[in-house]
Write a protein that binds this DNA or RNA. Sequence first.
DNA 1: GGAATTAGTTAGCACTACTAACGAAGTATA
DNA 2: TATACTTCGTTAGTAGTGCTAACTAATTCC
Lengths: 149, 149
Amino acid sequence: MTQARKISADPAAVTDRLHSAAIHLLRRVRRQDVASGLGPAQLSALSVLMFGGPMGLGELAAAEQVRPPTMSRIVAALERQKLVERASDAGDARRIRLRATAKGQKLLQKGRRLRIAYLAGHFQKLSAKELSALGEAAEILENTLRNWS
Amino acid sequence: MTQARKISADPAAVTDRLHSAAIHLLRRVRRQDVASGLGPAQLSALSVLMFGGPMGLGELAAAEQVRPPTMSRIVAALERQKLVERASDAGDARRIRLRATAKGQKLLQKGRRLRIAYLAGHFQKLSAKELSALGEAAEILENTLRNWS
DNA sequence: GGAATTAGTTAGCACTACTAACGAAGTATA
DNA sequence: TATACTTCGTTAGTAGTGCTAACTAATTCC
């Protein structure tokens, strides 16, 4: 019965539906995240910097799938708000070393709490099995994105 | 073995990872979608209009989780490109009736083919089981988003 | 030493989001 | 009926995020 609908056989159909679901999921979240005072790109960059440790601007841009000029502006905004700080790279004066400040980490955790309170509140209505399915999907997507091409 | 890691038990963790995966998935897709000449919001609105049938601006804005002024601009851009056309609503002169043109439908299908060729190409590397897991997750997300609150 | 490459920035454009304020049309009510 | 309220969509102004092109400064290669 669970397999009665062929919901998952066709890569094209899965692509379509995941794409649409991702768009609308993020639109919901965006409304919550503005509470942090940061835009989505700033939040995401700060998050990468926090979990990935200090890195250069180019690496951060690559991690975020954005061009260097775009990341340059995002970082400038984060610096103005003292959420990120830069140090010069010993050994290569062209490079900069970006690091999340304590303030940045605090803000990120608060934003994460708000987002989770919002999203997870809805996800809690799901059965354990459904939640597990979402978790597995996230895992698969992470792997796929990591080894993209 | 498959259950060795508790990847899915915690709603907060699932939320976090789905959120991040959605962000990065869409960033990949965005790079492809610019080929259509439309921005992501225009593409998504056109798609809703095509699959949901003709509707008013307010409804479309609500469906897309955007404010009316935002949708007003998106629709204006689509009209300039003859992808959407408006008619007056018989019975309420304040309302407008938005409809995807044949040109809009054609463009949307072409964009969809490009996106699928790109994404599904990567998804094809997945096992049938993994693909099925993504399909189920899309289904669950769709339902959750539909009955949001 | 000079040329080519690499890291990051600046400038300028386009798209998408918001709020505030408005006009026009419909509805309710005194 | 006249006035007030509500609803629908638009206009104006601002902010954030994406891009390319062009630039400076530092490094590497020959």
